[in-house]
């Protein structure tokens, strides 16, 4: 039996750190895209003409009903067959973004529907058009009211981003695996990676807490 020996970890920290960096980059970019696309989907599902609305609803339904891993494989390995060659990093970001956009869309849709209809009436009575009302009045309030729910999604996204290691992106889990294949020390390095995910989540939660408090002040 091989004992635990963490003294080997510091030597490989630069490599692990690189993985950590890519995890952060992929997560932040995907989070932003998933929020923007999620709001876009929500607005389409609620307000767009049927020609646009139904394909988007079908797409959302398909994305909700299938695993993220499969979606990544389809984007990265599958699309090449029909001539769409997306690099691994972007495949990962697109997959994560769309996967979580679908969930965010559901949250935003509920957030928009639950707004008092007096808000829209007040804006319309001032002379705002339908889309202006959505842009200036509905969307900002929906975003604010859904901070906790979307925040939970973003915590999930950060952890799920590890799946992109499966298409060869050297994020945190992937770099841990690289180090392990060299050192045969799985426990030490998986634990290190786990600790780093935990720290990232603590930071994310602190950020979300700040946003929530800020939003709360204006209620």
């Amino acid at each position: 039996m091989q004992g635990l020996d963490f003294s080997i970890v510091p030597e490989y920290l630069p490599l692990i750190g690189k993985g950590l960096w890519w995890t952060v980059v992929i997560s932040v970019v995907s989070a932003l895209f998933s929020i923007i696309a999620g709001m876009g989907f929500a607005l389409i599902v609620l307000y767009a003409s049927p020609v646009v609305r139904y394909p988007v609803r079908l797409f959302m339904w398909l994305f909700m009903g299938t695993p993220l891993l499969l979606q990544l494989f389809l984007i990265y390995f599958g699309l090449v067959q029909i001539g769409i060659d997306i690099p691994a990093l972007w495949s990962g970001i697109i997959g994560l973004s769309l996967h979580f956009a679908v969930y965010n869309a559901d949250i935003f849709r509920a957030g928009i529907v639950s707004l008092d209809k007096g808000q829209t009436e007040a804006a319309r009575s001032l002379g705002f058009g339908a889309w202006q009302t959505r842009l200036y009045i509905v969307v900002p309030q929906a975003l604010r009211n859904t901070v906790p729910a979307v925040g939970n999604m973003m915590i999930a996204l950060l952890k799920e981003s590890s799946i992109v290691s499966m298409i060869g992106i050297a994020e945190l889990v992937h770099s841990a695996q690289l180090v392990i294949s060299e050192t045969y020390r799985p426990f030490e390095f998986y634990l290190t990676a786990a600790a780093l995910y935990y720290v990232l989540n603590l930071i994310l939660e602190a950020v979300l807490g700040r946003i929530e408090r800020k939003v709360e002040l204006s209620r």
Partner: peptide
């Protein structure tokens, strides 16, 4: 009509029972 009604509404102020201020 959307354009027309928006310009008409800009000329009419409305005050609601439940205020409907924008909370954000």
């Amino acid at each position: 009509f959307e354009k027309h009604i928006n310009s008409v509404r800009q000329q009419m102020g409305m005050v609601f029972q439940h205020f409907n201020l924008f909370p954000h």
